[in-house]
Amino acid sequence: MAGVAVSTTINGDAVEYLCQPDETLLEVLRDRLGLTGAKEGCGTGDCGACSVIVDGRLVCSCLVLGAEAEGRKVETIEGMAHGDQLHPLQQKFLEHAALQCGVCTPGFLIAAKDLLEKNPSPTEEEIRFGLAGNLCRCTGYDKIVRAVQDAANVMKGA
């Protein structure tokens, strides 16, 4: 199996790696680059725990090949805060206790960020359908939805 050389941008930084043709972007992030914030909950695109943004599109990194990232811009949870300043969504997730075990949290935060960038004033229903690709088994989603609503308000005011 011939390795594929890839040049890409991750969280604003130029990154180069060699990966196998069938290796997923999630495997590359976690096992080659040490970016373990994206989680594998299923490996089949059903749980959203591995969500990242590629060229402005929310995707499951388990359903993207590492080779496909050539020349793209990848955003992961590790790049969400600005320095020591948490993103409003991160802050609101903490304040609302929108996480219990926290393993789905990186995926939810990335998906919620994408949602609010495309729709800054979502209704509860839009939030619920917008985040339906992210499974959480701990919270019953109540506090997650409230945290996203609160963050949307804060971000509009900013």
Binding site: G45, G48, S51, V54, R57, L58, V59, C60, L63, V64, A111, D114, L115, G130, L131, A132, G133, N134
Partner: peptide, 9 residues
């Protein structure tokens, strides 16, 4: 088809 994540692909 699928989730928002899948829609992007």
């Amino acid at each position: 088809i699928g989730s928002k994540q899948v829609q992007g692909r």
